[in-house]
Simulated scan of single mutants.
Amino acid sequence: MFKHAVITPFLGQTKDRFADYNVPLSLEEKFKLLSSIDGMSGAELIYPYEVNFEILDELKRLLAQYGVHVAAINVNVKAEEEFKSGGLTSPDAPVRARAVQYIKEAKDFAQAIGADKVTCCPLSDGYEFHFQADYVETWNRLLDTFGEAGEYKPEVPLFIEYKPNEVRGRCFLENAAKTIVLIKRMGNENIGVTMDYGHSLYGDNNPAEELSLLHSEGIKTYVHINDNDGKWDWDFFCGSRNLMSYIEFIYYLKKFNYQDWLTSDASPTRVDIAKMFAANVRMSNKISTRIDEIGMSTFEELLKKREYMDVWAALEGNFLKI
């Protein structure tokens, strides 16, 4: 069975451009809520805005009290004023150095709290308009900055999360393939990819195929789960819009013997928080169990069939049962 975690800010108040959803919760209240969700035992924590060295001892106490494990430390390199037009790719060397320092500090914090990874999604590094960026220079800056950050404390791996857009009109790292090229160029086996199911989906890619590409290229992978309509990163709950796609994704996670956390990156705006995250756990585990019941070898044989309608008939009978 999978290990399940949640990005903790989603347990409290969230906002969009027009409204606030749910109520603000303290870190202890979030952990209490997390521990009440059946099957959920991990937390991805945001550094430095949610957790930092000032509350390290208190955080350790709360983690122990509520039996919560740290799945990852998510380092935020976008909210500061200096990072709004890009941190890791900024034309200004001092700004790039500060962005790298944020990641290094997050590694220090991860080590202090006992987390085994840091994840970073460089959302402010991108562009909106033609002739707004020198693509050769920005690529080289990504190589330099992520390279330096990855070489620091290699025992705490750095995972890079790609995304098509937000907060920039187009992010420099928008898909798995480009992120793989970057990592291969850096030549650091301790730099991996945080693959967000929804980012792949609305980026007009197939999550199961991108997962397979990461596996085939030997890239360490950490997974965020959610769903959307293929048009935007809505962070819906798992399987709510693309059930067969999610079934295929779970199959490949099992095929590759994925052992890390499945971390819910989903936003419970108009639904009950605990019930929504419980659904993520339940759906993922039920699909996994059903695949086990059918047998991995059965799916291997299905993939060999040349007539797809025979494949669909098997899926119809085994999963849809209609």
Results as ranks from 00 to 15, higher is better:
E137A: 07
N140T: 10
R141A: 10
L143M: 03
F146Y: 15
G150E: 05
E155H: 13
V156W: 05
I160E: 08
Y162W: 13
N165T: 13
V167C: 08
V167L: 11
R168E: 11
C171S: 10
F172G: 00
F172Q: 00
A177T: 13
K178L: 12
K178P: 00
K184I: 05
R185S: 11
M186G: 09
N188V: 04
T194Y: 05
M195E: 11
D196M: 04
S200R: 01
S200P: 03
S200D: 06
G203M: 06
P207T: 03
A208D: 03
L211F: 06
S212W: 02
L213V: 14
L213E: 12
H215D: 06
E217A: 08
G218K: 11
I219N: 03
I219G: 03
K220S: 11
T221V: 14
H224V: 10
D229L: 02
D229F: 00
W234D: 14
W234M: 15
D235C: 07
L243E: 15
Y246S: 04
I247W: 06
Y251A: 09
Y252P: 00
Y252S: 01
Y252D: 01
K255M: 05
K255I: 01
Y258W: 11
D260I: 02
D260T: 01
T263A: 13
D265K: 00
A266M: 11
V271W: 05
I273H: 04
I273P: 01
